[in-house]
Amino acid sequence: MLDGRPLIDVHLHPARRASLKLDWATWMQGFTPPAGLYDEAGDVRPAAFDAYLESEGVDAAVALAEYSPRVTGWQTAEDMAALAAANPRRVYFAANVNPHLHYPVADELERQLALGAVALKIHPVHAGFPADDQAMYPAYEICQSAGIPLVIHFGTSTFPGALNRFADPALLDRVLSDFRTLNIVLAHGGRGWWYDAAAFLALADPRVWIELSGLPPSRLQTYYAKHNWARLTRRMIFATDWPGIPGIAANARAVAALCPDEETASRVLAGNAMEIYHLKPAL
């Protein structure tokens, strides 16, 4: 709990230093981890990670697997499952599949779901494929049938090798049309060139959600200035893109202060995530 409210962060990257392609300083982006959070090899200690989240007021967190050797490297589902095992009521994780690496993608997604994944995160910009790639459709069908969300990196990336053309919102049109009951979470909320597109999609379609990872709270109202703020905030899900942030609690307090009322703040900080990701933290 943070200031009497439940808090869920659905976008964290507790990466292993040895499997990162990026250099450590670029990855950390100025974040100074508390003593003991990482071991000597640069791996997050599961119990320390759980304690850190508790200290930030986080009731549930979703760590992200990522198979993007082109840009960021490898953060496996097994890595994330090991973190979740330290406290399954607080730490969850999202699967990741890459059609250039996994075939059939459905088999790999089923394998990661069996490890305990609660969502599928895809990373077209880092992995180098369009979101409407037909090779991904079997994975989307699994998500729709299982009732788990599809999380899509929806914004620019400045990391070397990123292909930002694959974040074009037009690529979502066919997916939304072909999967009529699939919840889609727009990670990074259209960061860079597509804030208006993200807002339009979230306001027009009740299956689409804006996820706030990597967006400074102080800039949110500027990013979405063309849209009804009171309506749009109800379509938002709190997230940070940890570790490159000032702090989870600091971001959460800043986001809550922007919400038009207490009900909306509670939905943004936890309620929407609990509904869409089916999380059951120990509150």
Rank of each mutant, 00 (worst) to 15 (best):
T233N: 13
W229Y: 02
K226G: 11
P206G: 12
W229G: 05
E211L: 05
I210S: 07
A204W: 06
M236I: 06
S213V: 06
R219E: 02
S213R: 08
N228R: 03
T233K: 09
G214R: 04
P206S: 14
I210T: 00
R235Q: 10
A204P: 03
L212P: 01
R219Q: 13
L212H: 07
A230C: 02
P216W: 11
Q221S: 13
L232P: 04
L232E: 12
T222M: 05
Y223V: 04
R234K: 00
Y224Q: 06
S218N: 11
I210W: 01
S213T: 08
A230G: 08
L232A: 10
L203N: 08
D205Q: 09
P217C: 01
H227R: 05
L215S: 00
L220H: 07
S213W: 06
P217F: 01
R235N: 10
L212W: 00
W229L: 10
R219H: 11
E211F: 12
S218F: 10
R207Y: 05
T222A: 11
Y223C: 13
S213I: 02
T222N: 04
N228G: 07
Y224I: 00
D205G: 05
L203V: 06
T233A: 15
H227K: 06
R235E: 12
Y223I: 02
K226H: 13
I210P: 07
K226F: 04
P217V: 01
R207A: 05
L220N: 00
H227T: 10
S218Q: 13
R219F: 02
R207V: 03
R231Q: 15
D205N: 15
M236K: 08
M236E: 08
R235G: 06
P216M: 01
G214A: 09
G214V: 10
A230Y: 12
Q221L: 15
Y223G: 09
Y223L: 14
Y223P: 09
S218D: 10
S213C: 05
L232N: 00
L232K: 03
W209C: 03
I210K: 05
T233F: 15
Y223M: 15
R219I: 03
Y224L: 05
V208P: 01
Y224G: 03
H227N: 05
R234A: 14
R207M: 04
A225E: 12
R207C: 05
A225D: 10
R234N: 13
A230E: 15
E211C: 09
L215R: 10
Y224S: 07
L203R: 02
Q221R: 15
A230S: 14
Q221E: 14
V208E: 04
S213N: 00
R207L: 05
W209R: 08
A204S: 14
L203Q: 09
P217N: 07
L215W: 05
